[in-house]
């Protein structure tokens, strides 16, 4: 009987090289950041000033929180399209509780704590629903969260128009709006909040069994199940945390706008998913980190800000951002093909 001998390692070296390059999107992102910043600075010298950079940094915090939440879901090979709608919903619910213009707890000492609780609770609630549908009814995440997005964004508009005559809820107490730009000592409150989320998420992903389970499920759910991973519970937890992060992010955005509005961040969805992909969180699951989320958010925000600075029209901004997200997605697909051999 003719038998096969070892396959000659023809492509092996080449494949490994490409895989290594692709598996470190951090370098690409940092390189792009530097090049882009220099290019914009050449055009508008004020761009590299400390004021601008710290402003960029402060402005990206709520986006980062939302992207970290999204990363949890993407690592288990899911996607949550409902985050922005969830942000709008939590914004109007919490706003209706806190507003001085006829809020449920207007002028009460409880207004701000209850408002903050509403952001977290309703965010988690929408996430929990998504997670249960995905894990237990085995619905595709795309459809579940797309439907939740429509439902929740509709509900948010209905709620706010039922609660007030105009579309948005103003008159939020200053104790709450301080979250947006207030400081504790010399440090921005939003920064402290974000750092807490970043540290907890990073620790959770890298140092706990829960984090490792996310990666295992994202790569191969059947194998995870056979290996004794509580797959469904972990999936539900990822979606719930994603919703909670959306609520937290909405809290900072609402505080900054001093307004509860159902359309709080309705155009932010692609920024959220795009940031994650740019940083190297895979659309196909099983890969991602808090650092990746941060780099993605940083690059996208700097690009956005730079083009605002130059004064380019929105449509140029949209095209450039879209092109970069598309490229990142292409790289992601290539990485999958060359590195992880998953087809």
């Amino acid at each position: 009987m003719v038998s096969d001998t070892t396959v000659p390692p023809r492509k092996q070296g080449y494949r490994v090289l490409i895989a290594r390059l692709l598996s470190e999107p951090a370098f690409t992102v940092i390189g792009l950041l530097v090049v882009y910043t220099l290019a914009v600075t050449a055009a508008v010298p004020g761009f590299l000033g400390a004021g601008t950079l710290s402003a960029i940094f402060i402005s990206l915090l709520p986006l980062l929180i939302a992207v970290i939440g999204q990363s949890f879901v993407m690592i288990v090979a899911g996607i949550d399209l409902s985050v922005t709608a969830t942000m709008g919903l939590t914004s109007v619910i919490a706003g209706s509780v806190m507003t001085a213009n006829g809020g449920y707890l207007a002028d009460s000492a409880l207004a701000v704590p209850v408002g903050i609780f509403c952001f977290l609770f309703f965010g988690a609630l929408v996430g929990l629903f998504n997670g249960l549908c995905v894990a237990f009814i085995r619905m595709p995440p795309f459809i579940v969260t797309l439907a939740t997005m429509m439902f929740v964004s509709g509900a948010a508009v209905l709620y706010s128009s039922w609660h007030t005559t105009s579309v948005s809820i103003g008159g939020l107490p200053s104790g709450f709006t301080r979250i947006g730009y207030g400081t504790i000592g010399p440090i921005a409150f939003a920064l402290i909040l974000t750092v807490l989320v970043v540290v907890a998420a990073d620790f959770g992903l890298r140092r706990t069994t829960w984090g490792r389970w996310l990666f295992a499920i994202g790569n191969n759910p059947t194998a995870a199940l056979i290996s004794g991973v509580p797959v469904r519970a972990v999936q539900v937890s990822a979606y719930t945390l994603c919703g909670t992060c959306a609520g937290l992010s909405a809290m900072i955005y609402s505080a900054r706008l001093e307004t509860g509005t159902p359309v709080l961040s309705q155009n932010l969805l692609l920024d959220i998913i795009g940031s994650a992909v740019i940083g190297g969180v895979s659309l196909f699951g099983g890969r991602g980190s808090v650092l990746a989320a941060f780099l993605g958010v940083l690059l996208l925000t700097v690009i956005d800000k730079g083009m605002q600075f130059i004064g380019l029209t929105l449509f140029v901004v949209l095209s450039v951002k879209g092109a970069i997200i598309l490229l990142a997605a292409v790289l992601d697909a290539l990485r999958l093909r060359y590195a992880e051999g998953k087809s």
Binding site: G49, G51, S59, L257, Q308, L314
Partner: peptide, 21 residues
């Protein structure tokens, strides 16, 4: 020129950019 695409958060950021500018 700045167009916010009906996005309040983005418009606020745009205003900040212009102030920094």
């Amino acid at each position: 020129e700045n167009i916010s695409n009906l996005d309040d958060s983005r418009q606020f950021q745009q205003v900040q950019s212009m102030i920094e500018r």
